[in-house]
Simulated assay, not measured.
Amino acid sequence: MRRRTRLVIAGAMALAWGEWLNWRWSHTLVGNSRGATDAVVVLGYRNPQARANAINRWRVRAGIRSAAADGAHGTRVIFSGGTTGNGATEAQLMADYAKSVLEFDGTVLLEDQSTTTWENITNVIPLLEDVDRIKIASQPAHALKARAYLRRQRPDLAEKLVRADDYRPGEWTLVKPLLALYGLWTLRGLTADERQSQQSHP
């Protein structure tokens, strides 16, 4: 087999692997809870610039489309992330992008104290107590990590987790193998059950 052919096959396998792993993470620790009210938690990414960076812009888009996915009434979008070092917070930068660029006019709440994923979850819990369904929007591995943290902190609220629209086939395809490798590293602190289990609800 020629070297070029081997490289093409290896590249195709890497892309397929990246797609599959991100798909699997997006379907882990979620159920099919039903209800009238949703909360979509959008997790921030370090953002020293004065405007939302590319990763945060994508996370906002994923959060907004997650809010619109099921047509639930009373959906709130919670932007979570603390200071970026320039006076603004990740939460505020994401909210500004959602409103000014994406023209989102739904309910927006800010959690602007967190500096870690664990703190993201700890600090949004009071904003989740009265909703029927919870979606967490980020890159699939990061969102899974956050769902696992919610399950550790508040198993009762974790029962309300459903899938966010943060994985789509063909989106970020070329970098999904890198995202998969990075995700495996970031998820190393989770248990095997947390990385693989899927919730089920009636």
Score class of each variant (00 low, 15 high):
150 L>C: 03
63 G>P: 09
83 T>A: 10
77 V>M: 09
16 A>C: 12
131 V>Y: 03
142 H>L: 09
122 T>I: 08
137 A>T: 10
174 L>Q: 12
57 R>S: 03
21 L>P: 00
60 V>I: 13
142 H>G: 03
56 N>W: 01
77 V>K: 11
40 V>I: 15
6 R>S: 02
142 H>Q: 13
32 N>T: 15
12 A>H: 03
166 D>M: 08
118 W>M: 09
144 L>I: 05
163 R>D: 02
172 W>Q: 14
87 G>N: 09
72 A>P: 06
10 A>K: 08
29 L>W: 02
40 V>N: 04
121 I>R: 05
111 E>M: 08
102 L>W: 07
59 R>K: 11
63 G>W: 09
50 A>H: 13
97 Y>W: 11
195 R>L: 14
85 G>H: 10
53 N>M: 06
13 M>Y: 01
137 A>M: 10
72 A>F: 01
200 S>A: 15
113 Q>K: 15
143 A>S: 14
172 W>F: 15
120 N>H: 12
80 S>W: 13
65 R>E: 06
119 E>L: 15
134 I>E: 02
157 L>V: 08
97 Y>R: 12
5 T>I: 09
17 W>F: 15
92 Q>C: 01
165 D>F: 09
47 N>Y: 05
66 S>P: 15
124 V>H: 05
97 Y>D: 07
42 V>W: 06
198 Q>P: 00
89 T>Q: 04
169 P>R: 14
10 A>H: 06
161 L>G: 06
197 S>W: 07
24 R>I: 00
82 G>K: 12
25 W>D: 00
112 D>P: 03
9 I>P: 03
185 W>V: 13
17 W>I: 07
193 D>R: 12
10 A>C: 08
67 A>M: 12
95 A>Q: 12
191 T>A: 02
49 Q>D: 14
29 L>A: 05
75 T>L: 08
53 N>R: 10
23 W>H: 14
52 A>S: 11
112 D>M: 03
88 A>T: 14
71 G>N: 12
176 K>A: 09
142 H>T: 10
172 W>C: 05
94 M>Q: 05
